[in-house]
Design a protein around this nucleic acid. Structure first.
Lengths: 345, 345
DNA sequence: TGTTAGCACTCTTTAGAACGGAGTGCTAAC
DNA sequence: GTTAGCACTCCGTTCTAAAGAGTGCTAACA
């Protein structure tokens, strides 16, 4: 059977109305709502066809139809338009917060949640590699040695080391020199036993300190291995009756609170996506591959801070989410983020 | 009317049963459940008295009784016993995470939530004063100057400054010297214009850099002004039907997600509480002074890292929360936290 | 005087029945 | 190809009745 223009139009109307009301859509409603000037009977015939083709579903006999995953898919694939303007004012608000990237991302999640009425998540930027650019040890007082490590992406880590016995200034200088020459440019994964052994040899007498120093460095470099995830508007889920039964709410909110599962997901999915359109992706129901999201849809986009450094933004809502608006909002937001990151360079 | 032993015992039983079931408790149930060997009729008389005294409430005629806020209050004031042991094994788990205090606190929140089945929140330690102990500026590359600030509580802040033009090593040394002599021991609030002016004078030529340096220092010191709040188990709220209607869930979970309101609350309430018992406080229903917690109870405790540095732990559950267990768990946990902090000293 | 059995009464919860509405599928006519 | 009409299905709501839980009161008992 062929999906002609009229069928497409009817499908579109069904989805549109369903997005607004969340209730199955009947033939009479469509007949009245559209400018097709067709009777409900005709619409019924078409709907019967659409159902046969798998685009819509009847929850039970004598109910209207709701879009199937396949129907939504067609919708998002073919019918998205650019709206883009109404989020322009987000930018001003965001600029103020641009100081620290974590604050900025938190704010992005919040803004998106408030603007869309869906739940949102933003993953912190993921650095492709972590190379040591600069290490400095400083004695703070007799008992404390401070390690500051700058990575090649200019993030700074620090770790306080407790000293068993005071270190004289000269030793610290020597330590700094050795560490910098040995570790500079090295990736975390490259810090193997051989390198460590070499450092120990060079330091000679102060083997004891070296151990804790290297441990501290290891800690500092490893620590952020699990990437940050900022979520917001999780309670928006409660606004959609089809997600509001206790079991589903518990699962979904649990996932948002726990974050681990979402983080895993964010990590797993490849950044894939041409830079121009920020790789906006729509996952519908089972397409998410997440058990607790069977009744949800997920729209994701990728932002890039600079080459090889990227993060993701995700919006979770009911299947009847307003894809049109969400995608437009995301698109516009991504452009503004790009601007902001460019300014910071 | 006097609250004699028998009345007290009956009240106790009512609360105990209600805590378990969440349903109003009838006279017959009590008669069977206790070893008082009283008929339901007698119990009824006593219950009638208890209601008159305000300790219990009838949701409607011909329902059993549930404890009033006053009843709960009596319960927690007089009937708590120490259990203390069953949480002993928390300690082992916690020790592992003791490295970074924020990770530790997050873990505490989670452990408590899992163990009690209530929602929990833990506020990060609040430092009574923030004095600068040590400042160090370092050139990372031609364009970047790194500021590391150690506060007198040994927390470390850092800020990266973008340089307009390269700084020679000598200037950096001078800058370090001046900053340390000028700012050492100073509280954030003491950094007024006079101090700043003096620094600028001493630096002479490099006024330009000084501005951004001082701004960076200011940022670093101010940043953590709003205290951290770690929450966990918010979805546990869904386990209690009396809190599960949509309006309440939305409000409560919203509060937990937003955190601001909880933070305010945690800040407002004085730490009050003798050190021995960790100032465990129980707020029942309206006693919380929080709109969205009218149907909840809140148990808080205070932990101390060292003098003047303290934070709070809170457990939010339904009014029929198992106060006994919660208080015991908290008490035991606080002792273990004390131990851990002591070890770290 | 305190305790208890008994009973009428109240209120809630549950189940069932009845009903209306929404929507469909099919048929026959245009 | 389109439409009007109609029988049918299923859901949700409303209403009623019955069951259950619990009380308060009274009268009897130890």
């Amino acid at each position: 059977m062929k999906l002609d223009d009229r069928k497409l139009k009817i499908l579109q109307v069904i989805i549109k109305i369903y997005l607004e009301t969340g209730e199955p859509v009947g033939s009479r409603t469509i007949s009245k709502y559209t400018d097709l000037n067709l009777s409900s009977a005709t619409i019924r015939n078409e709907m019967s066809d659409l159902e046969e083709m798998g685009y819509i579903i009847q929850p039970h006999t004598s109910a209207g139809r709701i879009p199937s995953d396949k129907g939504y898919r067609l919708y998002v694939d073919t019918m998205l338009e650019d709206k883009a303007q109404e989020v322009q004012d987000m930018k001003a608000e965001l600029k103020e917060k641009a100081g620290r990237i974590d604050v900025l991302l938190k704010e992005v999640a919040k803004l998106l949640a408030v603007n869309t009425n869906y739940a949102t998540m933003v993953s912190g930027p993921r650095y492709a590699s972590k190379k040591v650019k600069f290490i400095q040890m400083t004695t703070v007082d007799e008992e404390h040695l401070l390690t500051v490590i700058v990575l090649d992406n200019n993030t700074v880590k620090n770790e306080m080391i407790r000293l068993e016995e005071p270190l004289d200034q000269e030793t610290v200088l020597k330590l700094n020199f050795i560490l910098n020459t040995s570790l500079n440019g090295l990736d975390v994964v490259d810090m193997n036993l051989a390198v460590i052994q070499k450092i120990k040899e060079q330091m000679g007498a102060h083997n004891l300190v070296i151990d804790s120093v290297l441990e501290a460095i290891g800690n500092a470099l490893m620590e952020n291995e699990d990437l940050e995830l900022y979520t917001s508007g999780a309670t928006n889920i409660l606004k959609y009756p089809e997600l509001s039964d206790k079991a589903k709410v518990t699962q979904l909110l649990g996932a948002f609170e726990e974050k681990r599962m979402l983080t895993d997901w964010m990590e797993k999915e490849e950044p894939d996506g041409e830079a121009e359109n920020h790789g906006i992706q729509v996952y519908i129901g089972s397409e998410t591959n997440v058990e607790s999201m069977q009744d949800c849809s997920l729209v994701t986009a990728t932002y890039r801070v600079n080459d090889g450094v990227y993060g993701k933004i995700g919006i979770v809502g009911p299947k009847r989410m307003d894809y049109d608006k969400v995608v437009a909002t995301l698109q516009s937001l991504m452009n503004q983020l790009d601007d902001i990151f460019k300014d910071k360079e």
